[in-house]
């Protein structure tokens, strides 16, 4: 594999990681902690929304993030032809 595609692959990987980490941070520390008091004025069923993020919602989003990451990385692997045989 030539150097160009190696650095391109790593750049694409880091780009994906950055996107996911931003969502991860906003959900956990934004919605779940820093803005939870503000979100609590909205209710989701019987849940105040900020409370729901900290006790339920964040966890569902983490699962989605990991599978999304696994799928996207598979795409990037193939695009740069570095996937396992």
């Amino acid at each position: 594999m030539e150097n160009n595609s190696a650095s391109g692959y790593w750049k694409a990987t880091l780009g994906l990681l950055t996107k996911i980490l931003i969502i991860w941070f906003v959900v956990s520390f934004g919605a779940g902690i820093l803005f939870a008091p503000a979100l609590n004025s909205i209710s989701l069923g019987g849940y105040p929304l900020g409370f729901w993020f900290a006790h339920q919602g964040a966890i569902y989003i983490y699962i989605a993030l990991i599978f999304w990451y696994a799928k996207k990385m598979g795409d990037i692997d193939r695009q740069f032809d570095v996937h396992e045989e």
């Binding site: 996911i20 991860w24 779940g32 409370f51 900290a54 964040a58 966890i59 983490y62 990451y69």
Partner: peptide, 12 residues
């Protein structure tokens, strides 16, 4: 919730 998020968010 710090336990709930802390012990699952690390998996990401």
């Amino acid at each position: 919730g710090l336990f709930l998020m802390g012990w699952t968010g690390g998996y990401v």
